[in-house]
């Protein structure tokens, strides 16, 4: 355990050193948060809630989106390409060590992002969550785990850095813009709302949003089951298809 932590600390240092994840995962949602607040923070977005209330949960999810769909697949593909994963086979440790520590790093990025958004919202923008905070954390964790399993699947199915890059672009940007993570879902025409409902992140954000606003959630268990199902299926398939080189 001590040796794993040592490995993790170094990987974490490297993750913080490359500014990509901090830019996309942390600075961007905080920036969008401030922007939305300047434009429409206290305006009513619907009955009894403001745009800030509505976008809080979505912006918390941006960190998950960045670390799950960029951080995880890009790091794994890069390490596979550089034979770093293969090298771990020639040591007494399993390559699971390095995969585990990188997943942990991505989790920490997502957490850092969530904490920053929450801090700015609460301290500077006077945000107060109407729903149960603990339940919200639970919904965040479930969304995180299910999206990470999708990221892992992307890393497993794509053999080369090039294909991972392409798939990342195809998955990350639609999820970012169409799932309600950055552009408030309420602004979409209803046709688009229905269409984007198929994106897994949309479901995660729906859940987090409903919990954060303390709303009566129709289908809450359906969404939870869906996310759990996604996690199970993606994890099993990615473990089965994973290639070390």
């Amino acid at each position: 355990m001590k040796r794993f932590l040592k490995l993790y600390m170094i990987e974490q240092k490297l993750a913080l050193r490359s500014s990509d994840m901090l830019t996309f995962g942390v600075a961007m949602p905080v920036g969008v948060l401030i922007l939305i607040n300047m434009i429409a923070g206290s305006k009513q977005a619907g009955a009894g809630f403001t745009y800030l209330d509505s976008s809080f949960a979505s912006l918390i999810a941006v960190g998950i989106c960045a670390s799950a769909f960029m951080g995880i697949p890009l790091t794994i593909a890069d390490y596979r390409d550089k034979k770093i994963l293969k090298h771990f086979f020639t040591t007494p440790c399993s390559p699971m060590w390095i995969l585990g520590s990188d997943m942990l790093c991505c989790g920490v990025t997502a957490l850092l992002s969530a904490v920053s958004v929450a801090f700015v919202s609460v301290v500077f923008l006077g945000y107060k969550m109407q729903g149960n905070v603990l339940a919200f954390m639970g919904s965040w964790l479930l969304t995180l785990v299910s999206m990470f399993s999708i990221g892992l699947l992307m890393a497993s199915l794509c053999r080369t850095v090039k294909s991972v890059n392409a798939v990342t672009t195809l998955v990350y940007f639609p999820m970012l813009f169409l799932s309600g993570a950055t552009i408030p879902y309420e602004l979409f025409p209803s046709g688009l709302q229905k269409a984007t409902g198929v994106l897994p992140l949309t479901q995660g954000i729906k859940l987090m949003k409903a919990v954060s606003m303390g709303a009566e959630i129709e289908n809450v268990w359906k969404i939870v089951m869906l996310l759990v199902g996604i996690t199970l299926i993606c994890t099993v398939v990615s473990v089965k298809t994973f290639r070390w080189e």
Binding site: E11, L14, S18, D81, K82, K83, I84, K86, T90
Partner: peptide
């Protein structure tokens, strides 16, 4: 073991 043409993490 030193594997053929192995590389290391960016920025390490």
């Amino acid at each position: 073991v030193q594997l053929q043409s192995s590389n290391y993490q960016n920025n390490i």
